[in-house]
Design a protein around this nucleic acid. Sequence first.
DNA 1: AATCAATAAATTGGCGCCAATTTTTGGCGC
DNA 2: GCGCCAAAAATTGGCGCCAATTTATTGATT
Lengths: 256, 256
Amino acid sequence: MKRSRPLRRKPKRPEPKRQEPDAIDLRSTDDDPVVQGILTAISQKRLKPGAKLGEDKLAKAFGTTRIHIRQALSHLASRKVVMQIPNRGAFVYRPSWEEAKDILAARRVIETATVSAAIDRLDKAGRAELKAHMELEARHDRNDRWASLSLTAEFHVLVAKLAGNRVLLEMSRELMLRTSLAIATFEQPGEPDCLPDAHPDIGALILARDKASAIDAMRHHIEEMEQRIRPKEGADEVDELTAIFREIDARGRAGG
Amino acid sequence: MKRSRPLRRKPKRPEPKRQEPDAIDLRSTDDDPVVQGILTAISQKRLKPGAKLGEDKLAKAFGTTRIHIRQALSHLASRKVVMQIPNRGAFVYRPSWEEAKDILAARRVIETATVSAAIDRLDKAGRAELKAHMELEARHDRNDRWASLSLTAEFHVLVAKLAGNRVLLEMSRELMLRTSLAIATFEQPGEPDCLPDAHPDIGALILARDKASAIDAMRHHIEEMEQRIRPKEGADEVDELTAIFREIDARGRAGG
DNA sequence: AATCAATAAATTGGCGCCAATTTTTGGCGC
DNA sequence: GCGCCAAAAATTGGCGCCAATTTATTGATT
């Protein structure tokens, strides 16, 4: 009985579901705007290692509630992009010197493999994508720091994509993000991760299917990054954290 | 004034901090008992891919509250060990066929590299550890299924440890866990991940510092795993999910 | 009898409140 | 002035409650 249509629910809003293939950076496949926002800020070096990520401030900044922030921070902590300390809060991850070295060594392993696989699988579409990206990188405005940072990162992502292995692609993304943190920690902050001059060479070698040379070039490119980081004396020292946090706090939120 | 000692705090209990070097499996460095419990259950194949992980049930099982469970599940979802579907709950991750192939291909890349690095860095302590493990694996009780599963996994972890790169070690752990899920999904459930006969050969070659042969042996060992999985027809089909979940639910929780 | 719709039950998602801890601030003595 | 101690303020952690959605059950219709 009772066909009275009890209208028991709300009209069920149409589900925003942002799926835009938007900006260029190395965030992963997750579509949480808070996670994406923080990842973008980190990859653009607008958030420095050690920066405090207060829950209330983030909640206000993103116009959401503290619960979403907690979830996002927890997720980023699992990915070693954020460090959570009980009762003290979340901070942008600051890799140790040992970890920084290990991250780049891991990239050497994985990215030489992706270069190799990319050459094996290279097809017409892949060639086109690679050429398009190389032109973009050749012509881009070098004064636009953020565009430069995104473009150079995107090159490595593209190579990993061409390799056709999603797991290795995710690992590459992960390692690139952590490389950003490593370089920001042990080099001058604000510096780009890659010296961009290497990319055209590597790209050309991939297009030429010269596998051995391409692998060597990629290895060399990463070894250059490894040589650029130096253990800052006292950088890992305890309680130097607080000094940094104070500096961060002084200039307010990192929104610019 | 007022030196009245307001006894403002509790006596501050001595911090349990479980640090036991206990059981043998491939869970990572996190020390949350819920996370460890679920990871152990999965690596021991007591939780099958697709099994529902209800929050209330887990909370009761672990004697904790729903919040801790949510955090643990969220963390495991970040690591692709658990799949969370909005408003439906958490399930043991079930990799697609493509993903299963990619996981094993990634292992080929990473573990050949760790074998190589392990040989380069092999020292007295490392030799001793490796020998000890090989004896353990030779003498172990093959009737004890859980011990077997743990031991064979531990071999790969040990090699990654000897390589001396923590990042690659974590990635290896990650991939081994996901390999468990891949094999459980696309082979008979309950089967071990590794055919254990290969381990003595690889170990001997590492001890002999025969790098080329050791790498080949490891690659071959992983390729064997790759050949053991076969795409189950209809396993990736859409909406066959619901059928699986229903089946899972029908037989109650997967603990017993 | 099978199919479909509507109610009931179970489960997840999320907000608010409060306790516990940390960090800052204020004040006294050396 | 410098350092130590205590209270205040700010922040995180966690539990309970309720709304929203999904899943199961019941009942009616063809």
